[in-house]
Design a binder for these strands. Structure first.
Lengths: 149, 149
DNA sequence: GTAATTGCAAAGGATTTGCTCTGGT
DNA sequence: ACCAGAGCAAATCCTTTGCAATTAC
């Protein structure tokens, strides 16, 4: 999905403030890379937080719905989350080795999508666009993978 | 994924010809829409073929690796397959109601991806781009879903 | 006090793996 | 005969659901 439900960023999700919500928000605030629900859960546990996996999933979904975190699908299908810094719609270039991400502003696809939709008579068109590659640091460090052939 | 392993289309995958491979090839040949491994398996079973789910997955993966079928991820994460008609890299606009797909030639993204990769110092950059919407027929038939708000 | 939240346990669903039997060549 | 390939059963993995205990307000 692309542009989704909008919400006022900065306002807590849900009606009550709990230690779990705060803890998760804390980890997300301190993290700059995309992390899976499982990783976040593990991280929370490591720092001594009492936190259930279910709650992590619940919270993450709520945060995603509220537009407060970005969600992307890793190549293996796992969902990765990160706090959303840019409110506008955008995409990411993800390093498959170190997980580093670069923001990619995507005015181009947006327009393209709209044009195609109109041309084909489709409505409610959403798009998924993700880039995965090996960043400069990692391609120098890690061997292997070059262009096929 | 973008450019993948290349193979000679038209040549059977694997060394031996089996009834299962032929049956799967048959269904794929007769189908114009993307279908999940599970659906293909069910279809094969219905027409009386003796076919195991495992085999469907194995074959599908082999065919995908050989570039003989297109694979795309549905919104719910399920993988969908269809025989590949166009050898060149392309994308799809998928109707989330009836499953109809429209081919989208994507020279644009290709170039864009290359430019971004170069600019950010990434190598081996692949991309995933999918469009989902409701096609004209379905938006007329099925109610609901209009632009959010 | 009351309902939102938490989170364990179990379910669910796609895909893979272990391993043995079958069948193509 | 020999090994690629078929396929059942069980295992994985991520994610969701049921539901009772907890706790913010």
């Amino acid at each position: 999905m692309t542009a989704r439900a909008e919400a006022d960023p900065g306002r807590p999700v849900g009606v009550r403030s709990t230690a779990q919500k705060r803890a998760l928000a804390g980890v997300l605030a301190r993290t700059t890379t995309f992390r899976s629900a499982q990783e976040l859960h593990a991280a929370l546990r490591e720092e001594g937080q009492r936190m259930g996996l279910t709650t992590v999933y619940n919270q993450l979904r709520a945060l995603a719905d509220a537009g407060m975190v970005d969600v992307l699908q890793a190549e293996d299908g796992e969902a990765l989350y990160r706090r959303c810094g840019t409110p506008s719609h955008h995409h990411h270039l993800l390093c498959r080795v170190c997980g580093r991400t670069v923001l990619v502003e995507g005015r181009t696809v947006e327009r393209w999508a709209a044009r195609i939709a109109a041309h084909e008579g489709f409505v409610d068109v959403a798009h998924t666009l993700e880039f995965t590659g090996t960043c400069g640091d990692c391609s120098r460090t890690a061997p292997g993978s070059s262009v096929g052939g």
